[in-house]
């Protein structure tokens, strides 16, 4: 799948060198979801990851006897799925399509297999996941401040 249109702006693709980028291109397959469809469910094996090419995906959790709550949404260029790289390789949240979504799907099995023998590829993907995790943590901390709350300006 041609990923060139997303390369410059995607947190997944932009840090990769040509070799790693081309490898991911060779693994990527296009995928479509309709609004409301589930991309993956919490507590199931995390053996894929995704790049959103159009539309919005929500990470959700469902409390008992209450509507499903979205904790965060991701739009075009976002990397979806961080749990595939490291044990226990299980999804933490349920991902649903908010609207009609197109994605690039990456099967984690060949990627992890390649990482076994290609430490440079592994380092690059580990860096991507670590940086994205760090960015999400920073943003979460800011949200935690409740900046738009009445007394917190």
């Amino acid at each position: 799948m041609n990923l060139e249109p997303w390369r410059a702006r995607s947190p997944l693709l932009s840090p990769l060198d040509d070799r790693a980028f081309e490898f991911l291109e060779s693994v990527a397959e296009p995928m479509r979801l309709s609004a409301g469809e589930v991309l993956f469910r919490a507590d199931t094996p995390a053996n894929r990851f995704f790049l959103i090419t159009t539309g919005t995906i929500a990470l959700t959790i469902t409390p008992p006897s209450e509507p499903t709550v979205t904790v965060q949404t991701f739009g075009e260029n976002s990397l979806i799925g961080l749990s595939w790289l490291l044990p226990p390789h299980r999804w933490q949240w349920t991902a649903r399509a908010v609207d009609d979504v197109t994605l690039a799907l990456f099967d984690a099995n060949p990627v992890l297999a390649a990482c076994e023998t290609d430490s440079d590829l592994y380092r690059q993907l580990l860096t991507v996941v670590a940086r994205e995790s760090g960015r999400r943590l920073q943003r979460l901390r800011i949200r935690f401040l409740d900046l738009y709350g009445k007394d917190q300006k």
């Binding site: 929500a58 904790v71 949404t73 739009g75 908010v98 943003r139 949200r143």
Partner: peptide, 8 residues
Amino acid sequence: GDVGMVTP
């Protein structure tokens, strides 16, 4: 709609 900070 979207949930999260403005930056992403």
